[in-house]
């Protein structure tokens, strides 16, 4: 299990990287943290002729607040996000999910941008961006475009990124008041990709009824699945076990997940309903408790 031969570039700027990608297109692969790509190389399941390593590019590694958004640079290590007090405060959903991504050695190296651009439908980060309605910041030869997750994640391990484009950052809306979040997942073992994961955000109005609710699921489709229709019914209702159960039922019923050797389609469908209810319940408790 040794990687195949490739040529290796270390651009010093985004512009240099874009020039290389523009030149080599489909024959090039971007190396960020490498925690998904290098295993594929070692198995020889990916065989790019050119590897464009972003690790030498400055200014892609940041976590900051900008105009009501939490902005995170694509090359920010997952571990840095996990440790960030700003993330815990402004985006508790992300903070809750971080420790569930792989293991510490993976998060020490793995990047936010790498995980999003890899677009594994079982991964946590795409679902979080989808649940929160975040934005993906993409740079190409003609400048920057900002994409919504539903346009960015287009299929299994597939994004709307052109071969000559780079994901340079992600923006997540900062937490609103009276909003609770929860990320729950079931995996075969701790640290494995979830069989199903649910990211939930629930905002209450002053009277304690649901003002807004958002849900995204991992592991149940080729991309993160946003359950907008199912959550819409919550608006105006007081949070209740029955209401969350009903949302779970509706979510479950719309899904047609694939079977694999770890879980059947039927099981995933069922689990999506259970975890939806659990995530919403926890999010509602947190919204009431003010802990995010």
């Amino acid at each position: 299990m040794k990687p195949p031969p490739f040529e290796y570039f270390t651009p010093a700027s985004v512009e240099d990287a874009l020039a290389l990608l523009g030149e080599h297109r489909e024959q090039a692969k971007v190396l960020a943290g490498g925690q998904s790509l290098v295993p594929l190389l070692n198995f020889r399941l990916a065989r790019p002729r050119y590897l464009v390593d972003l690790n030498g590019i400055p200014h892609l590694d940041y976590i900051r607040e900008e105009d009501g958004w939490l902005a995170i640079g694509a090359m920010t290590r997952q571990r840095a996000v996990e440790r960030s007090a700003l993330v815990r405060d402004r985006c508790p959903l992300l903070a809750e999910a971080m420790p569930q991504i792989g293991h510490v050695q993976i998060r020490n190296r793995g990047t936010i941008g790498g995980s999003l651009a890899h677009a594994d439908p079982a991964a946590e980060l795409p679902a979080i961006v989808a649940a929160l309605g975040g934005r993906l910041v993409v740079r190409g030869p003609d400048g920057e475009r900002v994409m919504a997750p539903e346009r960015f994640f287009v299929g299994y391990l597939t994004t709307a990124l052109e071969p000559f484009e780079l994901l340079v950052g992600v923006r997540l809306p900062v937490r609103r008041s009276r909003t609770g979040h929860a990320f729950v997942e079931v995996s075969r073992r701790h640290g494995d990709f979830a069989l199903v994961g649910v990211a939930a955000a629930l905002t209450l109005d002053a009277a304690g009824a649901c003002a807004d609710a958002a849900l995204a699921l991992t592991g149940v489709g080729p991309t993160p699945v946003v359950a907008a229709a199912a959550t819409r019914v919550l608006v105006g209702q007081r949070p209740s076990a029955e209401a969350f159960q009903e949302v779970g039922r509706r979510v479950s019923e719309t899904l047609e997940p694939d079977s694999d050797l770890h879980a059947s389609s039927e099981y995933r469908k069922h689990l999506a309903g259970v975890l939806t209810r659990r995530a919403l319940t926890r999010a509602a408790e947190r919204a009431r408790g003010g802990e995010g």
Partner: peptide
Amino acid sequence: LLTTTFMDYLLPTAME
């Protein structure tokens, strides 16, 4: 054989 990696053939970790 579908279980040719340690992501598919699941050895227990300290958490299990």
